[in-house]
Structure formats: structure tokens, C-alpha cells
Design a protein around this nucleic acid. Sequence first.
DNA 1: GTATTTGCTTACATAAATGTCAATAACAAC
DNA 2: GTTGTTATTGACATTTATGTAAGCAAATAC
Lengths: 246, 246
Amino acid sequence: MSAVTKPTPHQTSAKPDDAGASDTIVSKDPKRSVKRVRRSASEARRLILDAAEDRLAAQGPEGIRLQDIARDVGISHPAILHHFESREGLVRALIARTSEQLREKILSALKSERSNETLEANDIVTNVFEALSDRGTARLLSWMLLTGRSPENSTSGSLVTEIAGELHEKRKEGAIRQNRPAPDHEDTLFIAMLTASAAFGDAIIGRELAKDAGLDQAGIARFRAWFAKLLYNHVGDTQHAEKRGD
Amino acid sequence: MSAVTKPTPHQTSAKPDDAGASDTIVSKDPKRSVKRVRRSASEARRLILDAAEDRLAAQGPEGIRLQDIARDVGISHPAILHHFESREGLVRALIARTSEQLREKILSALKSERSNETLEANDIVTNVFEALSDRGTARLLSWMLLTGRSPENSTSGSLVTEIAGELHEKRKEGAIRQNRPAPDHEDTLFIAMLTASAAFGDAIIGRELAKDAGLDQAGIARFRAWFAKLLYNHVGDTQHAEKRGD
DNA sequence: GTATTTGCTTACATAAATGTCAATAACAAC
DNA sequence: GTTGTTATTGACATTTATGTAAGCAAATAC
């Protein structure tokens, strides 16, 4: 959030501002020797990924520039290449980490939901919406898709299937308890898909939409609650569905 | 769609492939003089924007490179700068055109809907979904938002408000006809917002989601129909809403 | 202590993309 | 025809990003 603004967070390494006096070799004076900071590899990687994430969230895809990120962390840009091989490697690592975090955030929340009889649609919806808008996660993922960098892992893809699986279990339990017919599997899948798509879209254009519609923070909350209720009503209504339309 | 693949669609201008024989000045021979194609300014702009659009849809934001686009059109890259001032100008022009096309596509369809008593949710939903996924429109718009290039015009923003306005008129008519209480304005707004968000998200991750869930083209159509029906049921149910939840 | 590993740095190389400029050639007006 | 406008071009300038090479220094092992 603030890493972009402040020039050198880890100020431990001295800036070579006055070193221009000597003509070729800078580190001739041992007392003034460069006093390097040496982190563990994993720590360095973490810091770099954090900075890259901040840049991406704040400035969009084009904000991921090795020089800038290096400055944010307080290192030189070849250090990034040392840890990530290439810019592309950094990007892939960032995507991998973000995808993993997203999966954990959503799935753990979904599972830890105390074995609630009724589907707590509001909690789930809010959770998904916030997980995607947090720290520009959806921005990163959409950039990933925009530039065609996803396939192999398909972390974000399988996620929805997993969610649908979890949801379907809950719905079946609820149906048995209330002596209702088992819900259609595809119906549950569609609920998950719609939630994912809506949350994803919301994370990207939601702010614009809300601003344009004159919605404040409370209005946005109402919108999410409204959506959750829409799903909730649908889940309660599925058994009547055939009587009504088509 | 195909402009990226084929190197020179407008093959009228001769490639200077064999011109390397002469050592400095190529156009010494008047018979072989370069035979330029000279389009009208608007025509040239159109071709350039088309090519840029194709690139963007096919390769993502990074696919917009003056050299490549110039090659697609069959011109030199300074010609693009001549028409659009800068790369940024090209991008803004593309955004403006795409936004305008989107607005027209959606609004005209919404208005021309024969004064149908019941809201034809299926048509509207399908229309919005397709308008956004067509030619990478949502990709472009999301890139626009990702890189923070929207404000001023706010074409995409006000669009949702307009849609909501149109929808609300229809709902009021329908309500009067069926002697039901007038629908809540915010409810209509939320319908529009949800549709926009879902269609937007769908345009970006929909393909991934569908693939992962094992949905084929028919399945995707079912999903959209399912969503439309969800809205349709909700619209029919709004007056009972208070009896049920919260 | 000495040796080894490896995180990190400076300086340089390279490439790629945007943008500038002067000149050229279509086309329209007269 | 002549002239003026401007779409278009090739060659060049500039900037800026990624990536490379070689050496330095902090931790660890011995």
C-alpha cells in the first residue's frame, strides 16, 4: 500500500550517493564498506513478491518493473533476477502465490463454516467478494488471464469446482434434514460459477459501478447482501422451480 | 481474429524485400516507385483501430505494439503516430470506440425490445454476456480499469445507470399492468449491477470456469439461461420478499 | 582460523519500443 | 496543368526495460 510511495523501505544499505568521488573502485575504504544486508533466500523472495504485489495493485500490470520493485525492497534489480531467474519467473511466482492464498482463504472459510444447517449465503458471498477484491487479487488474476499465463496449474480453475463440491455437500445435508429432494448438482455448480463471476467482475468494475450509481460503502454492502439473499431464496425455492417456468 | 496470424492483410503496398540490391536510395527507379496506398484519414484510423483491437483480444494488452499493428495493417508505424499522436492516444481512441460500441449494442437492444410486458430476462442476459465477451470487449475494458485509464468519460460507468433506468421503466409498466406494487428502484439497480458484474467476470474467467467444470458450449448456454431465470423468478417474486427473509 | 556457498552489487550489454524528422507521393481544388 | 494539403515512409534518435558478468561479502561449515 505504501511501498510505492516511500523510496527505500529497507534503508540499511547505504545509497552510493557520495561514492562518486573515487574514480573506479568504490569499496576501497574498508570502514565505509558497503554494509550489505543479507537475507535468507525465502525471506528475500517474500519481500520481493510483496513489493511486486503492491506495485501491481497500485499501478496495474505495467507497474511490475524490476527497477522499481528493487527500489521498493531496497535492493538492486539483479538481485531479483538472482531469485526469480527472470521477470517472467517473478510474475509466475507471484501468480502462484496469490492463487494459493486465494484458494486457502476461500476454502478454509467455507469448510470451517460451523456445520450450519442452512447455507449461510451472506457469509459466503461476502467472503468470496472480499477475498477477490483484497490486495488486488482479482486484478492480478485477470491480468494473468488477459496475458494468457494460467494453464498448467489451473489453481483458480479447479477452485470453483472444489467450492461447488463443498457447497453441494452442504446442500445435500440440508435437503435430507428438511426432507426435500436432493438438489441438482449442476444447480450448485451454477451457483458457484455465478458467485465467482460476479465477485470477479465486481472486483474489477465494482468500484466504478458503485461510484456511478451513487452507492456508498453501505450501499455496496446492501448490494452484496441483496445478492446473497437472491441465492438464498433460490436455494430454498429450487424444489418449486419446475412448477413455475419452462 | 486472424489479423495477427497473417503478416500483411493489405498487401497492396510492395514489401521492400528485393530492394536491398541498390546501396542507398531505393526509390531511384520511378517505375518501381513505392506505389503508396493513401486512405482517407478516417478509413486509416478505422483499420488501425481494428488491428489494435484484434491484437488486444488475441494477445492481451502487451500485444498492442505499434510495429506489429502497423505490420497487420500494412503500413509503417509512424503512420499510426501520425493519426493518433502517440501510443497512448491510440489506446484511448480504442477504449473510446469500444465503449461506445458497447453502449450502443446493449442499449439499443434493450430499447428495441418490443414493448414486452414481461421482462425478457433471458434475452437481456444473453445480450449483455455476449456483448461483453465479443471481440474481447471486457478484456479491453478490464485492462482499461487495471491500468487506470477510465475516469473522465466514464462511458462504461454511466452505462449501467442507463440500463437500470430502462429496466426500471419496464418493471414499473409490468407492475402496473399486473396490479402489483411498484418495484424498488434499488432492486432494479442491483439487478443491473449483478448482471454487469457477472457478465464482466464471465467474459474474463468464464472460459476457464467452464473448462474446469467440464461444461461444453451447451452447458455455458444453460448457465446463462439459469442465471436469467434466477433473475426472472426474483422479479416475479419481489413483492413476496418481505414475508420471507430478514 | 580457512574454505565454501550464495545473496547481493556495480557496471555493462542488448534489445525493443516509442517517438522525431525530413522527404515523398497521392489526391483534391483551382 | 499547377498548387496545396496531408497521408505515408525510411532512417534516425532516445528512452527504458531486461538480462549478463564478475567480483564482493555475509553466513555457515570445517
